[in-house]
Design a protein around this nucleic acid. Structure first.
Lengths: 216, 216
DNA sequence: CTCCTTTCGTGGTTATAACAACATAAATTT
DNA sequence: AAATTTATGTTGTTATAACCACGAAAGGAG
């Protein structure tokens, strides 16, 4: 097992090598390698493992009934996925998890983790798990908030305002290009470009690429 | 303290009276009463307590920059709110929590809970916390999925399909009236009514009030 | 530097949803 | 049961965003 990589994952944060070993001995930490585009988890199946991305990256695909694929999320090295499903038994996956590039995934069985005798290490893991889940919660809630407005302008303002608050500045840099920003706000790219242009003309914002200025 | 009510909350699920008492002795479980429409948590403040609804109900309000109020959620008796914020220190609330009717709220300090020595009871609470958070996660993800489509029809189908899967039947009852369904899908009520009518005409669905039939 | 690819903005067209106003039906109150 | 309120459906109008096609700009690779 590659402990140095594992130590830098969100779920094993603040764990020493010995602690990870003790977990491995107690409940096992199987690793699996996947080729690019290989499916790691299929929609419909039930999972009982938290999946940890040791290397490479994974994309979470939503495939609605009529074959409309859309990428919900890219899970990067050190991050985890499927943890919510793993913590709620018997709920079938709504999405696919696919290797976005060659990757190694470590599987952590949650039920076994829970049934472990109390220990400092177990406690750390649970704490980390709560933090991961809570953070994701806040992100999901924020996105819902930002896509609540019926107009593109409203969505953009909602999103940029929050970013401005977070970054504590009216000059903000967002982690998206136009297409990604459009996807995040659930609008069409060119329509977003158009609206951003109008907002600039109206003196609401200024921008260049992914840097924006809110002219309050 | 009203232990019998507390025992039936999601966070204290499966805890005996003695266990709750031990938690109360160790970290305290202050209770506060609120009048209808009294603000329990203000947007902008940071919270460190999980808030437990002992009686009454609480509504989570989003007030965007331009005074557009919208009800994000009603938290009922036995449920908790603000838990995600409480688990991630120093993140300011994006929403208000307001007493929807006279209510009693119990406050559970997460940091204190985490720093408690390991015990069976602490373990139960953490497990419950993970379950609560994970469940909420799945709900939020589902909602994002359902509002991803750009058309009302797509959103309705996405939502109803999942409900059909969950309820394991093509006859489904949803927990919403039209207005609530429209809010959930982020569309306008009358537009939703219109589209539902069209979908019925197109033979896709049948419905009466809040019961639907997917004609696959 | 040139070629190629990707990203971004623009214009025009069309589909769609928001909005407003009203009608009908259902539920609640008295 | 009548009256009031609330929920739902309907119609028409208008604003808006999706969609399509294109061109310009930026970024990378050879």
């Amino acid at each position: 097992m590659n402990y140095s990589s594992l130590r830098h994952t969100s779920i094993f944060e603040c764990c020493a090598k010995a602690e990870i070993e003790s977990i491995e001995n107690a409940i096992g930490l199987p690793v699996k390698r996947y080729k690019k585009d290989e499916i790691i988890l299929h929609a419909g199946e039930c999972v009982e493992n938290i999946c940890i991305v040791l290397s490479g990256s994974v994309r979470i695909d939503s495939n609605d009934i009529r074959g409309n694929r859309s990428i919900l999320k890219i899970v990067k090295r050190g991050e985890v996925f499927a943890e919510a499903y793993a913590c709620i038994p018997d709920v079938p996956l709504m999405v696919d998890a696919v290797a976005n590039e060659p990757c190694e995934i470590v599987f952590l069985n949650v039920a076994k983790l829970f049934s472990l005798p109390e220990s400092e290490t177990k406690n750390k893991l649970l704490k980390n798990l709560v933090a991961i889940s809570s953070k994701k919660n806040l992100h999901l809630s924020a996105r819902i908030l930002h896509t609540a407005s019926k107009t593109i302008r409203g969505r953009v303002l909602s999103y940029l305002s929050q970013e401005a608050t977070k970054q504590n500045s009216r000059f903000i840099t967002i982690p998206f290009n136009r297409q990604q920003m459009a996807d995040y706000l659930s609008v069409e790219r060119s329509a977003l470009s158009k609206e951003l242009g109008k907002m600039k003309a109206d003196g609401l914002i200024d921008y260049h690429k992914s840097t924006f200025k809110l002219t309050l």
